[in-house]
Every structure is written in structure tokens, then in C-alpha cells.
């Protein structure tokens, strides 16, 4: 039987396989790190702006139409109370 031969092939496959997986995923790690840096550089101004505008919006206060509606409702309520 050539089990011995098969065993050596299996052992070499074990080594090449593990080295292959590690090399591939290590390359992927550096690629992801690099990608995050590059995308981060492009992304910064874009993500910063919407958050700034989002913060400003609530400070602009309640829209005029809402104030009108609320004051009308209050007036109506007070009239009914009398």
C-alpha cells in the first residue's frame, strides 16, 4: 500500500494549505487597513457635513405653521373653558 506516500502528500498539503490561508488573509488584512485609510480620507468631509446640518435643524425652532396651529388650539380651549 502507498499509505506512506499519501501521508506525505497530506502533510505537505496541510503545510501549503495553512500557509496559503494565512498568506491570503494577511494580504486581506493589509488591504482592508489600507482601504479604511483611503476611504476615511475621502469620507471625512462628506460624513461631517450631514451631522453638522442635522445638529442645526432642531435649533431652528418650531415652524410658524405649528405655532399658529397650537396657539389657535389654545385659544379654542380657553374659549370653551369660559
Amino acid at each position: 500500500m502507498d499509505i506512506g506516500g499519501l501521508l506525505t502528500t497530506a502533510a505537505s498539503l496541510m503545510v501549503t494549505g495553512m500557509v496559503g490561508v494565512f498568506v491570503f488573509l494577511t494580504i486581506l488584512i493589509s488591504a482592508v487597513t489600507l482601504m479604511s485609510k483611503v476611504v476615511g480620507r475621502f469620507d471625512d468631509p462628506a460624513t461631517a457635513e450631514p451631522t453638522r446640518t442635522a445638529k442645526i435643524q432642531p435649533q431652528q425652532g418650531v415652524p410658524q405653521a405649528h405655532i399658529a396651529a397650537i396657539s389657535a388650539a389654545i385659544a379654542q380651549f380657553r374659549n370653551k373653558q369660559k
Partner: peptide, 27 residues
């Protein structure tokens, strides 16, 4: 946290060790 890929790689040792084990079973 891309370094986690190394953990995904290490766990594949189960595959290649079993390959060796399957051939050993031929005895």
C-alpha cells in the same frame, strides 16, 4: 478590526489536520 482575519485563518487548521487524520485512518 481586520486582525480578526488571523483567527479565521487559524481555525482552518481543523480542516487540514483532519485531512491528515483521514489519510491516517487508511491504516
Amino acid at each position: 478590526n481586520p486582525r480578526m482575519l488571523l483567527l479565521g485563518a487559524a481555525a482552518q487548521f481543523g480542516i487540514f489536520a483532519t485531512l491528515f487524520g483521514a489519510i491516517l485512518l487508511n491504516f
